[in-house]
Design a protein around this nucleic acid. Structure first.
Lengths: 347, 347
DNA sequence: TTGATTTATTGGAACGTTCCATTTATAGGA
DNA sequence: TCCTATAAATGGAACGTTCCAATAAATCAA
């Protein structure tokens, strides 16, 4: 059944009675070929079950048609949504994205990046693993392969990043809680080695300043960015002398954890304690209670990252501007009704 | 910064004062090279920032080191877990898995498969999109590239499949509900164009037969395999004259939807209506109420699929046996306490 | 010393494509 | 009719590797 030696364009040329150059031209859809000849060649291609060898072609051609997407945690639906947005754009451009998972492991990340470079990718879209060293992309940059960071950025790096306006999102969410009447606020989850964390925490603190929340009434609990981490954060906070009455969470996973931990204690998110998440994953809307969250337009960011990448490839540059995606607060049940009217919601 | 013309093996040879063949040997870790020479060459490689060109190498070598994973829905955490299991095995074997998403679209799937073939993958692990035609893999088989189906199989196809024991899992879960005292049972979600659906529904019916549940007391509602689909199924079922008191769901997403729909009606899963899911995704344990579900050892299936693939590649065959993974019922809160003692739970 | 053996290294052909410079066929203009 | 312009098709070199057969250098046995 399986024809042993795989067919090449020379086999097709023989089959169709033309030269290999003609076959190559047909393969590339050149207009120089007489239509009848093209038909004849295409039939031969079909007959021999020919498979185009892109590796051989890339040996001659300037650039390949594959782009690598290197993602730090594929099990987080958030990144899957990002990937889906990118794929839409790339597909239309005739580019194939290959995805690889680094599982938040910098060593694994280096292996994956090396592999992708060896395959001759035209560009790389990366959501860097936690703990990525600043030098990790030096060789790739030196090779002239464009890199775009998505969602996360590295502390000191000239690589363009596409990310949501974390600071503003956190600020909006915190204001929302303050306007609801909360005066003792918490920020739950994440850790300071992530730039994203610093941005989101920064927005939280900015809003606290603006509304003159005393430092003593701000509770910051670092923790894993998962359900489990969220549960732990709540326990820690409620064990304090003057516990907070509301929390902005690093992301939705943490927020879900907080809601579960509240329920375990017989408390209800929204009624007894206000909870706001970040990212607005698909699940937020269907949770119980529905989660108030900062929407970041994940798929849109993916599309934008893809567009920036295509432009970089086209203009043969390794530089581009950062893009900050707009954010919006989606108010649902988990942040509860107004608490009292200590703070008016004028303006 | 970016050195224009990329370095080749010849540049390294010149730099190190050896021949290109020697460099090639070093690259492959051959023991024929004198250690000092190898060191000298490796230094040159580092100095010029050389990137290995796998495309060129594959032109000569029999087989490449990349394997394609084609997945029908990356946003389902279930498939991400599967991917993680495979990656563990492939990494150890020095093989790089590239993942692509088909978003349950057979046309997109064909494009992705074509692309992967063109890249010269050594093998393909596929969770076929719904509506895949039986001929979709003919050319790939003819080319002698091994294919393994994961989780799903195609109606008539000799391609080996790695999947959980769906029938037995559904049977176990249904028995569990019957032993709890339920007599009017439902099967929610999925549709009959999927082999998996037929297997799971088959297990449900088998248990119904075994315990002599009359046909009139079995409710089967097809629907989307998502939260939304689950919500719709429950509404449909409760609107019936003699509604069921328990449901086995096609998968966990459907089950979560059923739980949400119950809550919307003021009912509680477990107490008022028993719900059992399928797949036991990570979230099941942390849901509220915690979801009783059929555990399929997703990561384990991924590992097994990867092993089968490696063996096929090694023995140059395109045939292998199917693997049916063991399943087990994880009982949590959503299936509720015993209802009454119409059916004893002896044995 | 010499030849035989082992150890390291090397040149060249091949892999399947693209692309340039040519060649060949076709049509148009006088 | 011949020449020119255009259209269509072609051969050959190049891309960066691997691998075979061959060479060169080092070691050994006599």
């Amino acid at each position: 059944m399986a024809s042993r030696a795989k067919a090449t364009i020379l086999d097709i040329a023989r089959e169709a009675g033309v030269s290999k150059s003609t076959v190559s031209l047909v393969l590339q859809g050149s207009g120089l070929i007489r239509p009848e000849t093209a038909v004849k060649v295409r039939k031969a291609i079909e007959d021999v079950g020919y498979v185009y060898n892109r590796g051989a072609a890339n040996l001659r051609k300037a650039h390949s048609n594959v782009i690598g997407m290197v993602i730090n945690d594929l099990t987080n639906p958030f990144f899957a949504e990002l990937a889906v947005g990118m794929e839409r754009v790339f597909q239309a451009a005739g580019v194939v994205p290959f995805i690889a998972n680094t599982a938040e492991n910098p060593v694994r990340q280096q292996e994956v990046l090396k592999s992708m470079m060896e395959q001759g990718v035209a560009g790389l879209i990366v959501s860097p693993a936690r703990g990525t060293t600043p030098g990790a992309f030096r060789r790739i940059e030196a090779a002239g392969v464009p890199v775009v960071f998505a969602m996360r950025r590295l502390p000191e790096s000239r690589i363009p990043a596409i990310a949501p306006d974390n600071r503003r999102g956190a600020c909006l969410a915190t204001e929302h809680l303050i306007r609801k009447g909360h005066r003792r606020l918490a920020f739950f989850g994440g850790s300071s080695d992530l730039v994203v964390y610093q941005e989101r925490l920064g927005g939280f603190l900015e809003a606290c300043e603006a509304f003159a929340i005393p430092v003593a009434d701000r509770t910051i609990v670092e923790g894993e960015t998962s359900r489990k981490g969220g549960m732990a954060c709540l326990e820690t906070a409620l064990a304090m002398p003057d516990p907070p009455t509301a929390a902005l969470c690093f992301n939705d996973a943490v927020a879900f954890g907080v809601i579960l931990a509240l329920r375990k204690r017989g408390l209800e998110a929204g009624a007894d304690f206000a909870v706001v998440g970040f990212d607005d994953v698909a699940e937020a809307e269907h949770y119980s209670p529905a989660l108030t969250s900062v929407a970041v337009d994940t798929a849109g960011l993916g599309e934008r990252a893809a567009h920036v990448m295509l432009k970089m490839i086209q203009s043969r540059t390794t530089r581009a501007e950062d893009h900050i995606g707009a954010v919006s607060l989606v108010v649902r049940e988990s942040s509860g009704p107004n608490r009292n009217s200590q703070v008016g919601d004028a303006a």
